[in-house]
């Protein structure tokens, strides 16, 4: 069971959350201009990253808000939690946080 730190509510059990897939998949500027293949790729094709992966989660039984999370798909380490709309955190600075005492990743 993952312990996920909701940006609004703090650490809660994974069962309180739902997964929303890969983060930072932008809606196409002009969907009408896409070919069927491009549209299908936007809808269904996602990265299958081994390592740090930016993904969306929603705190379903808590504040019901969406947020982004950077998670290592191999170790399940949660590297960062950040708000919707914010860019993916720079990994090098995230690493520094992880080595500071008391898990500054909050």
């Amino acid at each position: 069971m993952l312990l996920i730190s909701c940006p609004n509510c703090g650490p809660r059990d994974e069962t309180e959350f739902h997964y929303g897939g890969q983060a930072h998949v932008a809606y196409p500027e002009n969907p009408d201009a896409l070919t069927d293949r491009e549209w299908a790729e936007y809808l269904f094709y996602r990265d299958n990253t081994k390592g740090n992966f930016a993904e969306r989660w929603v705190h379903s039984t808590g504040c019901r808000k969406w947020f982004n999370m950077l998670r290592d798909t191999v170790t399940y380490d949660i590297k960062a939690v950040y708000k919707m709309g914010e860019p993916r955190p720079d990994l090098t600075s995230a690493r520094q946080d992880a080595t500071s005492p008391e898990g500054a990743s909050k």
């Binding site: 509510c9 809660r12 808590g62």
Partner: peptide
């Protein structure tokens, strides 16, 4: 008061 899970 917290919204959470009790008994799943």
């Amino acid at each position: 008061a917290l919204a959470t899970e009790i008994g799943n």
